[in-house]
């Protein structure tokens, strides 16, 4: 029923390793992308002309940089950023380098997700906070981020699934994980069952991320829960 290749991969634990590598790359890249993207998104939101600290010039410059990185297709960005990866982690191959690439590609995306989540926070509530004398830092920490929490979590789930997709593409230039198994053992050596197994496992991972994210988001949302 299964091809010889599939059984060999399975018995040697390579598929299991692929799952682990994919999960590891995705989670670590998402976490690092939020380290950059979350503050960037907050700055984009508050320096907007409707924000609590309008700084049009800074907003324009940051917006341009974010748009620049977001408009490059990931596969091209990856190739272009190989020297940067080498500079940061010393290698341009393997998962360490792939994580650098994923973070470069995902941070601007995360920043826009965060920015739009924060935009949903009711302006009236922010004014109420201002009218009580809160300063901008307190508004960010005590009003903007807490009020946007459910939306931020939903955004993080979407970002994570996107990064998972990117991580599979990284296989084409030397990344590992399920993407690499599907391409080199499934596609290139004509073992469709290996490819489909990778597809199936990816779907499961996405489902788990999505379901866990939904639960956390629901728990933090105090607006509608009866």
């Amino acid at each position: 029923m299964f091809s010889e290749m599939f059984l060999k991969l399975w018995d040697n634990g390579l598929i299991q390793l692929g799952v682990w590598e994919t999960v590891y790359m995705t989670v670590l890249s998402t976490a690092l992308s939020y380290c950059i993207g979350l503050p960037l998104g907050v700055i984009l939101n508050i320096t907007d002309k409707e924000g609590i600290q309008p700084l049009p010039l800074l907003n324009r410059i940051l917006g341009l940089i974010v748009n620049f990185f977001r408009s490059i297709p990931f596969i091209i960005l990856m190739v272009a950023m190989l020297p940067v990866a080498k500079l940061i982690v010393g290698v341009s191959l393997g998962n360490k380098a792939m994580i650098v690439m994923l973070v470069i590609a995902a941070s601007p995306y995360v920043a826009r997700m965060v920015e739009s989540s924060l935009k949903e926070v009711d302006a009236g509530v922010i004014e109420a906070a201002q009218s009580m004398g809160t300063n901008n830092l307190q508004i960010v920490w005590k009003v903007l981020l807490p009020e946007a929490k459910p939306s931020l979590i939903t955004g993080a789930v979407i970002s994570m699934v996107t990064i998972l997709g990117y991580s599979a593409m990284a296989a084409t230039i030397g990344g590992t994980g399920l993407g690499q198994i599907a391409i080199s053992y499934g596609h290139q050596r004509f073992n469709p069952d290996v490819t489909w197994c990778c597809v199936f496992l990816t779907v499961i991972i996405v489902q788990i991320i999505q379901e866990a994210g939904n639960r956390i988001a629901r728990r933090t949302d105090k607006r509608y829960r009866a």
Binding site: G124, V125, E127, A128, S131, M132, G133, P146, E147, K149
Partner: peptide
Amino acid sequence: RQKIGMVFQSYELFPH
């Protein structure tokens, strides 16, 4: 502003 209390038409309580 701490010394000026304001009450709004649409309450503006923090929903969370």
